[in-house]
Structure formats: C-alpha cells, structure tokens
Amino acid sequence: KKIKIKIKVYNPETKEVLELEIEVSEEEAEELAKKLAEELEKKGYKIEEVEI
C-alpha cells in the first residue's frame, strides 16, 4: 500500500513557503517524514505541519 506524505515548510528568513508531496510504502512513510523534517530544520526551515 502506498502512503502520500505532504509537508508544508516555512522559512522565516525568506518568508518562503514550500509544499512537498511524495508517495512511499507504509513502512517507509514515518521514517522518511521524520528524516525530511530533521533535514529541513537543519537548513533553517520551521516545520509547520507533517501529514501522513
């Protein structure tokens, strides 16, 4: 079964909002969402919402 992940991120420095969407297997979904959120935060983005 495929799971659709939508991530909306906001960069306070540039006032930019990015929306990302990807489909992955159920097993990958939670781990991938967690890794993406961590990487984006390292780059200065503030995570507003992660929906699985």
Rank of each mutant, 00 (worst) to 15 (best):
K8F: 02
K43Y: 14
E38G: 04
E31C: 06
E38C: 07
A37C: 12
K2R: 10
G44M: 01
K15E: 07
E19G: 12
L18H: 07
I52E: 01
N11P: 05
E23L: 10
L18C: 12
E41C: 06
E39I: 10
E39N: 03
L20R: 02
V50M: 06
E31A: 11
L40R: 00
L40G: 00
E16T: 10
E19V: 14
E28H: 15
K34E: 04
V24F: 05
I7Y: 07
E16N: 06
I52N: 01
E26Q: 09
L18G: 04
V50D: 01
K34V: 07
E27R: 06
L32I: 13
I47A: 00
E23H: 14
S25Y: 14
E30R: 08
S25I: 13
E23T: 08
E26I: 12
I3R: 14
Y10E: 04
E16P: 02
L36F: 12
K8Q: 02
E23M: 11
K35H: 09
K43P: 04
I47M: 01
K4F: 11
E23D: 13
K15F: 13
E27Y: 11
T14K: 04
K1H: 09
Y45G: 12
E28L: 10
A29P: 11
P12A: 07
E28F: 11
E13L: 14
K46W: 14
A37Y: 08
E19L: 15
L36I: 08
A29H: 03
Y10T: 11
K46F: 12
Y10H: 10
P12L: 11
I22G: 03
A29S: 09
E38I: 10
E51W: 12
P12D: 05
E41T: 05
E48W: 10
E16W: 08
N11L: 04
I7L: 08
A29Q: 03
K46E: 13
A29C: 08
I22D: 05
K15R: 09
E49A: 15
N11V: 07
L18N: 04
E51P: 01
E30S: 10
E23Y: 13
K43V: 03
K46A: 09
I47V: 14
L36E: 00
Y45L: 14
K15A: 07
E39W: 06
K15M: 03
Y45F: 14
T14D: 07
E19C: 11
E28S: 08
A29W: 07
I22T: 06
Y10N: 10
E48S: 06
Y10C: 06
K6L: 05
E31H: 07
K2M: 13
K2A: 11
E26L: 06
S25F: 08
A37R: 10
K8P: 00
V9F: 15
E31K: 07
K4D: 03
S25D: 14
